[in-house]
Each structure stands twice: as C-alpha cells, then as structure tokens.
C-alpha cells in the first residue's frame, strides 16, 4: 500500500523583499485511496505545499522531508517525481504554444510508463476520457492550454489525471473559477480516477463548495504555514458556517 509522508516541512521562498518563511512545520500522511482536504485562507501556504511536493524550483525546503513509500522525494527532479507517481493539477496551467494536446498527452504517457502506449487502446482511452469530461474532440488538436477558458484548463488537468494514473494527486484549487456545471464535471473526473485507481488525493481549496462533490476522509485547516486543526468531514461543515475567522483570532491571541 502506497503512502505519502510529509514530515516537519519548512519551506522558504525568495522574494524581492528577501527570504520569507512560508511553511512552518507541516506534518501530513496520506495513504493510498484516502482523500484529504486542505482548507485555509489566502496566503496560508496551501499552494506552496502543492508546488513544493511537485518540486517547483521557486521553493526551498529548509527542513523536514517528503517520502513516497519511504523514498526521498526531495532528492528527485520534477519529472522523476511525476514518474514516481505524483501528480499536481495546477491552479493556473500554462500555455504551451505549438504543442497539441494529443502530442503532449502521448509524450507524457510515454515518459511516465517508460514506453509508448499502444496506439489503438490509447486513442480509445483518450477519446473515452474526453467524452467523460464533456470535452469536444476538436480539443485534442488545439495547443495545450492556448486560448482555453478557465473551465477548459481545469478539465484538461483532470484529463491528464485520468490518463496518467498517478498514485497521489495534489489538486491545487481545482475548483476556483468554475461554474457549477464545470465543477460537477471536474469533480466526477476526480471521483472516477479515485475509484478506478485507488488514487490518494490532497485536495487544496479555499471554499467548501467542491466538498459537496468530492467527499474527503480528512479535513485539515491550514493557517500561517502549518496545520492548525484537523478532523473528519464535519470540520468542513463547521468551516462553511463559521469561516476562518476564529483561527485568525486564535493566532493573534497567541502572539
């Protein structure tokens, strides 16, 4: 059984104003098949956690470790992490001009599997996944994320999630900017991937809205670079009613 462990993670980022400490000791363990929601106010470090797990060069780990089935993830390059079974669905996926979705998907699949997928089953898989995500077939011949609407970009992220079949996926505010129909389609895709592959999910979100469609096993509240509180799905319900205000109060009271 696969497990992703984050232990005492401290992360800095270099800014024009100097070094800033963003993560201040994060501990988190996700097992295969589990869905963890990480919720928190803006600027609490949720996205930093997502990008640090994926290995974005902007973030420096100053203390702590990330282990995937005991392997040191921090020593792996970005692409090695992906090939080890990690996936990050990005909040703002970048455009890749001149590279079609078809070409990109096939290249990524080949890299992840270590061999090119068989053409017939692959085309069928891609078409099937696109149909499930209510994506027009013309989409495949467009350049990656170029001129995509917000909803199309998010669908494209989930399309990759379904086709690349990672062990663990971090979804960085996948719900942001989606109308309710798109949110449902995207959530269904996440649930499908979860059911089909036993995917472990770290669902990062500002809002409780997506939790109506993707049911978390655990909810963690992220405040000022670490986990301030954790619990089951009921914690999300409480956040829906009360918001994040009481954490700010608690934080300022301790200072």
């Amino acid at each position: 059984m696969s497990v992703l462990e984050i232990k005492n993670l401290h992360v800095n980022v270099e800014t024009d104003q100097g070094t800033r400490e963003i993560l201040r000791g994060v501990d988190l363990t996700i097992r295969e098949g589990e869905i963890h929601a990480i919720m928190g106010p803006n600027g609490s470090g949720k996205s930093t956690l997502a990008y640090t797990i994926a290995g974005h060069p902007k973030y420096t780990v100053v203390e702590g470790e990330i282990l995937l089935d005991g392997e040191n993830v921090l020593e792996m390059s970005v692409d090695e992490r992906a090939r080890a079974g990690m996936f990050l669905a990005m909040q703002y996926p970048v455009e890749i001009p001149g590279v079609t979705v078809t070409n990109f998907l096939r290249t990524a699949k080949t890299a992840i599997d270590g061999e090119a997928p068989s053409i017939r089953t692959w085309l069928k898989d891609v078409r099937g996944a696109m149909t499930n995500l209510k994506m027009d077939s013309a989409f495949a011949e467009r350049n990656v994320n170029e001129g995509f609407s917000g909803g199309e970009k998010k669908r494209n992220e989930i399309l990759q999630l379904e086709l690349l079949k990672p062990k663990f996926a971090v979804l960085d505010e996948t719900d942001s900017g989606l109308d309710v129909d798109a949110l449902k389609v995207v959530s269904e895709g996440v649930n499908r991937a979860h059911a089909n592959t036993g995917l472990g999910i770290l669902l990062i979100t500002h809002y409780t809205r997506i939790l109506r469609y993707i049911k978390p096993d655990f909810v963690h509240v992220f405040v000022a670079g670490k986990i301030a509180e954790q619990g089951g799905p009921e914690l999300a319900d409480r956040l829906e009613e009360e918001g994040y205000d009481r954490y700010h109060v608690a934080e300022s009271a301790t200072q």
């Binding site: 060069p57 692409d79 992906a82 996936f87 996926p93 990109f104 990524a108 990759q160």
Partner: peptide
C-alpha cells in the same frame, strides 16, 4: 521556466 515545470510535472524529462 513555467512551461518547463509544467511539462516536467507530467513526467517529461527536462
């Protein structure tokens, strides 16, 4: 570099 990160995050070597 963001394009590079995106592609690498999908397993494609640098």
């Amino acid at each position: 570099d963001e394009q590079l990160f995106y592609l690498q995050a999908r397993g494609i070597p640098e």
